[in-house]
């Protein structure tokens, strides 16, 4: 039983290391800012997920089972979309991509471009 757990832990460590590396390769290799966002936010999340799984399995193989890596895993999976969304909004706001997005099909405009008309919240100029 212990050997199987160790083999499973080793396999997850391999997978995790591979995906973490791929995420950073994508960060370096891909050319446009918006596409660059794709590589690390997800490949790294699955990479760290597999590494945490490996750490959990290794702990079980040593006989001191622990589940608290699940907490880090859940936290990362909940926060990864939020950080990705914020960074994408930064790109949208700075108009860094060559192609600007099409307008919404239901009319109006995207929320990032929507400047508040309220006097107390003046839109930020420049950047």
């Amino acid at each position: 039983m212990t050997e199987y757990l160790e083999i499973a832990a080793a396999i997850s460590l391999f997978i995790g290391g591979f995906f973490t590396l791929v995420g950073s390769i994508g960060l370096l290799k891909v050319d446009t800012p918006m596409s660059r966002l794709h590589a690390p936010t997800k490949a790294s999340t699955l990479g760290v997920g597999a590494l945490l799984l490996g750490s959990m399995l290794a702990a079980f193989a040593r006989g001191e089972g622990s589940l608290h890596q699940v907490l880090i895993l859940a936290f990362l999976f909940v926060t990864a979309p939020i950080t990705a969304n914020f960074i994408a909004k930064v790109h949208l706001h700075g108009r860094t991509s060559q192609k600007s997005p099409p307008p919404p099909p239901t009319g109006g405009q995207w929320a990032t471009y929507d400047t508040p008309q309220d006097e107390t919240r003046k839109p930020v100029e420049g950047n």
Partner: peptide, 28 residues
């Protein structure tokens, strides 16, 4: 839905329209 789109690789949800009736997604 936005979180799901971002977590499934190849697509990132970027923005919501001001009336909240459409979602902007970027595909790799």
């Amino acid at each position: 839905l936005a979180g799901t789109i971002t977590l499934t690789p190849g697509t990132v949800s970027v923005d919501l329209s001001e009336d909240g009736r459409s979602l902007l997604v970027h595909a790799l």
